[in-house]
Amino acid sequence: MLTSIPHITKMLLIVTVVVAVLGFTDPVRETKVRVAPESEVVISGTTNVNEFTCKYNLQELELPIRLTYDEKAELIQFKNAQLKLANDCFDCGGKAINKDFRELLQTKKHPQVELRLLYVDPPKPDNQQIGVGMEIKIAGVTRNYETQLYCEQQGNNICVDGTIALKLTDFGLEPPRKVLGMIKVHDEIKVKLALRLNEI
């Protein structure tokens, strides 16, 4: 039995070297991107009498965002590609509607909306559409979504555009009523992304 221990140790060493050489571990890469000022993140919705649009002040996102991702055969999987959007930085066009919007999102308990990129299905030749998996957190409730976005890359600049439809009730939020119940916010809202990302 004692004579077999060096043999086992030698075999384990060989296996470790082979795994490292053949690259069986996931190829993890990192990069940094900056969100350009012309980018937009907009939450919009409708009521039974009008519509509303709440635009995010992207000056809050001036610092570079570090991305860590694994390049797979079919999907590019991201580990920490996340936008944290403070509810107070959404402007809906007036103090009253801003207050209503922040109350709707339960800002005192949950001050941020979080968008997290999970994976990207790279575009096919001659097609700028990409399949995207996203995690969206609103009012402390997280939901996963699959959608299609348009993506165009020019050098180190990446443009991503698209709209994601959500339901307030999916996040445990009750569409509010105003003016003695005569004005009702509809359940569906839309998150529009127009991101101009500069790799640095």
Rank of each mutant, 00 (worst) to 15 (best):
G140H: 04
G140I: 00
G140Q: 03
G140A: 08
G140L: 01
V141D: 03
V141E: 03
T142N: 05
T142V: 10
T142L: 05
R143Q: 12
R143C: 12
N144F: 07
N144P: 01
N144Q: 13
N144I: 08
N144L: 04
N144C: 03
Y145N: 01
Y145W: 01
E146M: 03
E146C: 09
E146Y: 10
T147N: 02
T147A: 01
T147D: 02
L149G: 10
L149I: 10
L149A: 13
L149W: 03
Y150F: 15
C151E: 09
C151L: 15
C151V: 15
C151T: 09
E152P: 04
E152H: 14
G155A: 04
N156M: 14
N156K: 11
N156L: 12
N157F: 14
I158K: 01
I158R: 13
C159W: 12
C159I: 10
C159V: 14
V160H: 04
V160Q: 07
V160W: 01
V160F: 06
D161V: 13
D161G: 08
G162K: 03
G162F: 09
T163K: 06
T163N: 10
I164E: 02
I164K: 06
A165S: 11
A165H: 07
A165K: 12
L166F: 03
L166W: 04
L166P: 00
K167N: 09
K167A: 11
K167M: 11
K167G: 06
K167R: 14
K167D: 11
L168T: 05
L168Y: 04
L168R: 00
T169Y: 02
D170R: 02
D170Q: 05
D170G: 00
F171Q: 00
F171G: 00
F171I: 00
F171Y: 08
G172H: 05
G172T: 00
G172L: 07
L173Q: 01
L173A: 04
L173T: 07
L173R: 10
L173I: 13
L173E: 04
E174D: 11
E174S: 14
P175Y: 05
P175S: 01
P175C: 13
P175Q: 12
P175H: 05
P175A: 10
P175T: 02
P175W: 06
P175L: 15
P176Y: 11
P176Q: 03
R177E: 05
R177M: 09
K178W: 08
K178C: 00
K178E: 02
V179I: 13
L180Y: 08
L180D: 07
L180N: 13
L180R: 06
L180I: 08
G181M: 02
G181N: 13
G181Q: 06
G181F: 05
G181R: 11
G181P: 13
M182T: 15
M182R: 15
M182V: 13
M182G: 06
M182C: 08
I183F: 03
I183L: 10
I183W: 05
I183V: 15
K184V: 06
V185G: 05
H186Q: 14
H186Y: 15
D187R: 04
D187Y: 06
D187Q: 07
E188T: 11
E188L: 09
I189Y: 07
I189G: 13
I189K: 03
K190M: 10
V191Q: 06
V191E: 13
V191Y: 02
V191S: 07
V191G: 03
K192H: 14
K192L: 11
K192Y: 03
K192D: 15
L193C: 07
L193H: 05
